[in-house]
Amino acid sequence: MKYKTLDLFAGIGGIRRGFELTKKFKNVMSAEIDDYACKTYEYLFKENPKNDVTSNEFKEQVENLEYDVLLAGFPCQAFSSAGKKEGFRDKTRGTLFFDIADILDRTKPKAFMLENVEGLITHKKGKTFQTILEVLVKELNYKVVGVHLDSKGNLIYNPRSFLLNSKNFGLPQNRPRVYIVGFSLDHYGEIAKMIPFKKLPTERKRGPIFNDINEILEKNVPEKYYLSQGYLETLKKHKESQKKKGNGFGYQIINSPGILKPISNAILATGGSGKERNLIYDFREEFVGKKLKNKKTPLNSEGVRVMTPREWGKLQGFIGYAFLDEDGNDKFDFPPGISDTQKYKQFGNSVTIPVIEEIAYEIAKTLDWLESETQTFHKEFVAVAR
């Protein structure tokens, strides 16, 4: 049985692809408003995802859609403490979580998976995360993995149990992210409270995809990715000044000699510090002191460069993994004309696909179990009624 997914805040389709890799899910509708991301998504999946999750027009479309699992990687936003607190419509209005909750309320899918940044669990001293869980459990009637209700109706959970790190899922990137998974009590009844899916998977079961940074580095990287000497000196001065203040901020060369099994820091959508915290030693004598038109000073003499967009793609599982065909040929590519800036942004904004895939396997197993248990219950009920 294939379950149908709705892909919200779709980006370039990382969450969708993670679910598709299990061969248990088929996507039926998507929503993304960034024009560049839409272009890449359409190039990869042959569908244009251009829809606005916040619009009534889209929500009405979704109300008429047959689907099973809602997927969404949404931005973290503060909730207003003002108002009468009349449920999620009042508590979360004006945030993108409100729109997710609204769609869950209107369409009541069998399950959902939400993804967010690590900061969600500490945002507003944990109140934002608590509000989200209360809405999902108490108002929308979902059994959320890792959440229990005590005898007084209080939510019992460990916020850190919702954190999964890409470095434990076969890729050399230190990227903790929050994942929330739930199953519908409206659809499955009390059986949903007994699911065997008690906690999120903490690692990839099938071994590493890339063991460390050295395995993802491209060969013969073009000169444009090398830092100018002036810029490298600026980074060194900044790091030194931060060190004097007792801070550990500043650039990092992640494959420095002596580091066993080097991994990257989390790549960022902005590209900025995501590049500076993930510099690479890759000495090319022919580039030393070379002058380029777009750099104010010659290229550095130490062989230091930024990671390339393709290397970022490997860190997220897009390249070298998620789009391999049966013969092992990599079918991932960007459409013609997409700039490096956009490539960095799109990978940095995306999810680590193998993490999603592992969660998707657990969701599929649980849905299979729920469908089977529900059918058994109905058969027994009918037999007793006769």
Rank of each mutant, 00 (worst) to 15 (best):
K205T: 07
E190W: 01
Q316H: 12
I100E: 01
E286W: 01
T95R: 06
D150F: 07
I100K: 01
T341R: 15
A31K: 07
R204F: 04
Q229F: 00
V178S: 01
I338H: 10
I156T: 08
S30N: 13
V181D: 03
I338N: 12
Y344F: 15
L164Q: 13
H378D: 09
L71G: 05
I191W: 01
Y179L: 15
E286S: 14
P336G: 06
T374G: 00
K198M: 04
A383V: 08
G348N: 10
L155N: 04
L140G: 05
I213G: 03
D68F: 00
K24G: 04
V137N: 06
Q229L: 04
F98G: 11
N154H: 14
Q173K: 01
H148P: 00
N116W: 11
G170M: 05
A383M: 09
E57F: 11
D333V: 00
G94K: 13
N158C: 04
Y188R: 03
T374Q: 06
P75N: 05
S161G: 14
R277I: 03
G153N: 09
N294R: 11
F332E: 13
S161P: 01
C76H: 13
P222Y: 03
P75I: 06
K314D: 07
K243I: 00
T54S: 14
N27L: 01
S273M: 12
G289Q: 09
P109L: 04
Y361I: 15
F381M: 15
P49M: 05
E326G: 07
H238K: 09
L217M: 14
K331S: 07
N211M: 10
I121R: 01
K127R: 13
I191S: 01
C38G: 10
D52M: 12
L164F: 00
F334H: 12
L136A: 00
S372C: 04
G87C: 14
H148K: 15
P196D: 11
T234V: 02
E371H: 09
D90V: 07
G83R: 13
F129Q: 03
Y231A: 05
F79C: 07
F79L: 10
L136Y: 03
L324N: 02
M29W: 00
S161T: 11
Q375R: 15
Q173T: 02
T374W: 04
G18E: 07
T270C: 02
I319S: 06
Y3W: 13
E20S: 09
I33V: 15
L367S: 02
F9D: 12
G250T: 06
S273W: 14
I132D: 02
Y157T: 06
K199S: 14
W369T: 02
E362W: 14
L71S: 03
E203P: 00
E286G: 02
Y251A: 05
N27M: 02
G83Q: 12
Y225E: 07
G18L: 12
F283Q: 02
K379A: 04
A72D: 00
E86R: 10
L6Y: 02
S350A: 15
N211V: 08
D325G: 03
